[in-house]
Amino acid sequence: MSIPILEVVDLHASYGRIEVLRGVDLTIPKGAVMALLGPNGGGKSTLTKIISGQKAPTSGHVHLAGVNLRDAAPEDLARVGLCTVPEGRSVFPNLTVEENLTLMSYAGVPAEAVLETAFAYFPRLLERRKQLAGTMSGGEQQMLAMSRALASDPALLLLDELSMGLAPLIVDELYETVAQIAQSGVSILCIEQFARTALRVSDYAAVMTGGRIVATGEPEEIMATMSDVILGGAA
């Protein structure tokens, strides 16, 4: 059996006295797309912050490719290939698309290669290359955020609420790109509140609520068993 690229074991975390993660166990095989679903407030984004080194857990372990992480800084994790597209996109609103992308060349990738990768995945950004990022639509800003992540040549990509605030057609388009990225061998963890689109491109799925993983399995199983409980009308 191959070593999973990400393994989370009995992870606990809290904000002050409020415990938000209560023993999370999660495994992502290398090259797989895992959808992490669940209602708002379930602890999904907190789990992302801990995996990407932005928050310290109170107990538990995070293993990356069979190596135990301990006090790893976010920039070090990004350098070894773990890249996060955070909730809310976080593009520089008063820089142009091209300037936003060129900033990623500081990570060591030449600016031309960054632009080439971005425009190959998202041709629409090529049309908007001179436009201020803050004036673009939400979907285009999300494309820009994903492009910046792809520019760092990630091996494990964490996508936090990719579909938040976007129209269903745009979400479909973004997830088609996610599927393309997965085909290139990148392991992906998609955190989503709304499930149906994410499950379509996933190899595995897990449902998280109340700070725990309550179900894992293949997408069809999850849809069949959990849709009425967790996904509700939003699925």
């Binding site: 191959s2 070593i3 690229i5 074991v9 290398k30 090259g31 372990h61 293993h63 990356l64 490719a65 069979g66 190596v67 135990n68 992480l69 301990r70 790893a72 070090d76 994790l77 070894v80 290939g81 773990l82 040549d153 990630p154 091996a155 494990l156």
Partner: peptide
């Protein structure tokens, strides 16, 4: 052992991990 699972601690280069 770095953790109770017997794994070393450190920072692996994910791009060089073999499947």
């Amino acid at each position: 052992g770095a953790c109770s699972h017997g794994l070393d601690s450190g920072l692996p280069d994910l791009r060089k991990v073999n499947s």
